[in-house]
């Protein structure tokens, strides 16, 4: 036997598939799977939320204390006035929900509904609105979130999504980012609808209390200059809150549909 050296014609140890194709197939399969799971668990959360009464909610979250940084004292006249406004608005729509307002001393302008019947108001908001009606609309919007139980729905979904992401990809890995669009899209689409619903309800509350809806768009108008507007088409779908300009248009449309009128607004209380 003579040794005849030669190289093999084919390399059988390496598959000659297209990696990009494989990537696209695997990626879309997992994305579709995640979207279905999030949708299904979303339905489950909605179902569960109906069984949590406001009293039960308050009990569950009574030990749930966030950071105390910047929280003003309960005796602060601004906070007391905000609490008074919330109480009056709730009374008008016969809402029985134990709600407390917490004012936080910061430059940022925002308000949010937090589980446990808490409305957090960031002080910057008070500088953005010019009238009592404008401020009432923002508070009414948060009230509407409580009526629709959006704070619980949002938190339930958040927990499910975080748990899923940690389970599937391992928490804190760069890999999680790959599926961020799928999760964000799901969340953003959902909360955009909820925000619009809350805006509608807030108009009703405003009309109930003042008899008209003047000042409803004040806050969003003040926020518009910082908005990117319609420039970022892709980012738009990932924003949980519909962009300010769009919300103003949406509000105008609702006002027309519901036959509300806008009269002169009341000036802000002196404590602000």
């Amino acid at each position: 036997m003579k040794y005849k050296p030669s190289l093999p014609e084919h390399n059988d140890n390496v598959s000659h598939d297209q990696p990009v194709r494989e990537f696209v197939i695997l990626f879309s399969a997992i994305t579709v799977f995640l979207l279905i799971v999030f949708w299904a668990t979303g339905l489950f959360v909605d179902y569960a939320v109906d069984y949590i009464s406001p009293e039960m909610e308050a009990k569950i979250f009574s030990s749930f204390n966030g950071s105390k940084a910047g929280v003003v004292s309960p005796k602060d006249p601004k906070q007391a006035e905000l609490q008074h406004m919330v109480d009056q608005l709730s009374e008008c729509i016969h809402l029985r929900y134990p709600l407390t307002v917490h004012l936080i001393d910061t430059e940022q302008a925002n308000a949010m509904a937090v589980p446990g019947g808490r409305i957090i108001v960031l002080n910057g908001l008070l500088n953005k609105v010019n009238s009592e009606n404008g401020l009432s609309f923002v508070l009414a919007h948060e009230l509407a979130h409580f009526i629709h139980r959006d704070h619980l729905r949002g938190m339930g979904r958040g927990i499910v999504i975080t748990a899923m992401a940690a389970l599937v990809t391992g928490s804190g890995s760069d890999f999680t980012q790959l599926f961020a669009p799928a999760t964000n899209f799901n969340m953003a689409q959902y909360s955009q609808t909820r925000e619009s619903m809350a805006d509608k309800k807030a108009l009703e509350i405003l009309a109930c209390f003042y008899g008209h809806v003047g000042g409803a768009t004040e806050f969003f108008k003040a926020m518009t200059p910082n908005d990117k507007g319609g420039k970022n088409l892709l980012g738009h779908y990932f924003n949980s809150h519909p962009q300010a300009l769009e919300r103003i248009n949406n509000l105008h449309r609702l006002v027309k549909e519901m036959n509300f009128d806008a009269k002169t607004v009341k000036p802000l209380n002196d404590v602000f």
Partner: peptide
């Protein structure tokens, strides 16, 4: 690396 991680979900040849 990412392709291999994706492959981890379904199993099979880690061709990458």
């Amino acid at each position: 690396r990412i392709l291999a991680k994706l492959r981890n979900f379904f199993g099979g040849n880690v061709q990458s």
